[in-house]
Computed example of a mutant assay.
Amino acid sequence: MLQTPAAVRNAERWTAHNYHPLPVVISSAEGAWLTDVDGRRYLDFLAGYSALNFGHLHPQLIAAAHAQLDRLTLTSRAFIHDQFADFCRELAELCGKDMVLPMNTGAEAVETGIKVARKWGYQVKGVPAGQANIVVAEGNFHGRTTTIVSFSTDEDARADFGPYTPGFTVVPYGDLAALTAAIDENTVAVLLEPIQGEQGVVVPPEGYLPGVRQVCTDRNVLFIADEIQSGLGRTGATFACDHEGVTPDMYLLGKALGGGIVPVSAVAANADVLGVLKPGQHGSTFGGNPLACAVGTEVVRLLATGEFQRRSAELGARLHAGLTDLIGKGLVAVRGRGLWAGLDIDPALMTGREACERLAERGVLAKDTHGSTIRLAPPLVVTEEEIDHAVAQLAAVLAS
């Protein structure tokens, strides 16, 4: 059984209990491996909820961070620094968009997207003041601010945080007819995850995303894709939307954009959308700071080679093949794309938490969600041998 070290007890004593981490205390890491305070090594199959797509301490990213730390770390947006333009240009080109608005966290990117969509609705579409609405999906996870939890359907995230922000219509995920019916003359945007991560790596039905794209075009509504977890190589493509040839009006990005070093998020869209913002209407002291831009630019350059997208697609096929073999042997279902998988464990065997604890005992770290579901998201630098090892440890846990 996993033991509870003193560092865990101290953390529980001095911090709010808004997380329930596994009782493992990490002190160092490299690539796809973590080492705890006792020197035990673990294979990382969570990758910081996809914030560590390029692994721990990727040399190119660490070098960029070190070089920038010796020069300049913060100016605020009151001034322009020498890393800003390259980051914004190269990220905009990666997204195929005209403009980028850098922020810090994923939730900030979502809040920015909501504000921009509403302002676009009033100034461009002509929605009456105060009447804008945004269509979202059941099972969504876009962050935990008061506005965002207002349209969450997860009671753990939402309960007791009201009063809730109006202006959102919730429809079943993957149901194009319901989404189409929910759009009215005051709808300014549809906000969706192209794959729902927190819900258990739920992939929508084939044709759903193209259908959303078409109805948004037909009804003059912005399609906002929250690619904070699914984007930047995780699914075997630069963006999860790419699998169905869909280009949203707005990308919301984060997590892996900071390379696991600094929090970096961004909104990418064309000038006819992001151009509605004027000075003083939105901002962030740390958004687009020099250190963030230096690291973020190197992240974009890693993705521009296509290497990590290919690795995710090829190694993801191996991962999913191994996991599919366990259906009927303790697994009920496997979902996902690329190096991202949601696994439903037979609830008669164990909970997702119990499975993750037993995996940790075997040197593999993953995280549970929603009862008997666990998520696997190894860094994109993982090897075939490491994937096979992790699947073998999962098989042993299920067999036990």
Rank of each mutant, 00 (worst) to 15 (best):
D218M: 07
F239V: 08
G283Y: 07
G260A: 14
K255M: 10
G275C: 08
A271D: 14
N270C: 12
T247F: 02
E244F: 14
H282V: 15
T217H: 14
E307G: 01
T238S: 01
V300A: 15
T285H: 07
E244L: 11
F239N: 12
G245H: 12
A269W: 00
A237P: 00
A240N: 14
R234T: 15
G231P: 06
F308N: 01
G260T: 06
T247L: 14
D242C: 05
E227F: 08
V221Y: 01
R301A: 03
F286L: 15
T305A: 14
A240F: 09
I228L: 06
C241K: 04
N220Y: 01
N270E: 08
L303R: 04
Q281D: 09
T235W: 05
N289W: 08
S230P: 01
I261E: 07
D218F: 03
P263E: 06
A269D: 06
L303C: 13
A256H: 02
L274S: 10
V276H: 05
R219K: 15
E298C: 11
V262K: 01
G275Y: 06
T217K: 15
F223S: 00
G296M: 10
F223M: 15
R219I: 10
N220C: 12
M250S: 06
E227W: 02
E227S: 07
A237N: 05
M250K: 00
F223Q: 00
L302H: 07
E298Y: 01
V273I: 15
A271K: 13
D249A: 14
G259N: 09
G280E: 04
E298T: 14
P279N: 06
V262F: 00
C293W: 00
G287S: 13
I228H: 03
V267L: 15
L232P: 05
S284L: 04
D249M: 04
G280W: 11
K278Q: 14
T217S: 14
L252T: 02
T235M: 09
L302N: 13
R301T: 09
C241Q: 03
G233A: 07
V221W: 10
L303W: 06
A292I: 00
A240W: 02
C216S: 09
T238V: 15
L277Y: 07
I224W: 09
R234P: 04
Q281S: 09
E227V: 12
A271R: 14
V264M: 15
A269C: 09
C216I: 10
T235H: 05
V221S: 14
N289Y: 10
G259A: 09
L274E: 00
S230N: 10
V246P: 07
I228G: 01
G258S: 11
R219M: 11
M250G: 02
Y251V: 01
P279R: 03
P279V: 10
D242I: 07
R219L: 13
A225Y: 05
P263N: 11
G296L: 12
G280H: 12
L274V: 10
T297P: 00
L302P: 06
A292C: 08
T297D: 09
G283A: 13
L274C: 12
G254N: 04
V276S: 11
I261M: 06
S265E: 05
A269H: 01
A304I: 07
V262A: 00
G233V: 02
D218T: 13
T305I: 11
G236D: 13
